[in-house]
Amino acid sequence: MAIVKSISEQEAEGEVKAVYEQVKPMSGGVVPPTFQAMANHPEYMKLVLQKMQTVMGSPELDKKTKLAIAFAISILNNCEMCITMYSKQLTDAGFTDKQKVEILSVIDLVGSMNHFNNGMLIKPGK
């Protein structure tokens, strides 16, 4: 249960409603719960939207790569909301279940190697 009241699409007015209209096409036609909570602070919500548009709109990496990175980070941060959202977006972008599992296997491999190196105090060579 969220700790703040969500502002529904029906309740949204003014700048909140305008941001919702920009977010919906990026989120499968719905306003994500995250933005409904952020609507309690419209200036911050607009800042987050601008950051999303800047980062996700940059041509340096393709959309599928960005979604895979977002999915991986969401798993590492244990964010159920984001894992669910990015998993759906990966599917919509053409990722197979096998590819999603491969992302998880890379997280498992690199994470376990990181833990081992950290635990053994292994430092990079010169």
Rank of each mutant, 00 (worst) to 15 (best):
I122D: 05
M1S: 15
S87Q: 02
F71H: 15
N78P: 04
L49W: 05
P32C: 01
Y86S: 03
Q99I: 02
Q22H: 12
K88E: 12
Q53E: 12
E13I: 03
L90N: 10
N117D: 11
T65V: 09
I107S: 07
P42L: 04
L67H: 12
N117A: 15
E43N: 12
L67C: 11
V31G: 04
G57Q: 00
M85I: 09
I69L: 12
K46Y: 07
G28A: 04
P59V: 10
V16R: 03
Q53Y: 02
G14E: 04
M45E: 02
P25C: 06
S74V: 01
S8K: 00
L47Y: 05
C79H: 07
E11P: 11
T65A: 08
N77I: 09
P42T: 06
D92L: 06
M56Y: 01
L61W: 08
Q36N: 01
L104Q: 06
S112D: 03
D62L: 05
S87I: 03
E9P: 04
S8N: 02
I73F: 11
C79A: 03
T34Q: 11
K17F: 13
P25M: 00
L109G: 13
T96C: 06
E15V: 14
M56I: 06
M26A: 10
F35W: 02
M56Q: 04
M113Y: 10
H41I: 12
K126M: 13
S6W: 00
L121R: 15
S6L: 15
A72Q: 05
G119F: 01
F116Y: 09
K17Y: 09
E80P: 00
Q99C: 09
N77E: 10
Q89S: 12
M38D: 05
S58T: 07
A93M: 03
P33G: 14
N114I: 05
L90M: 09
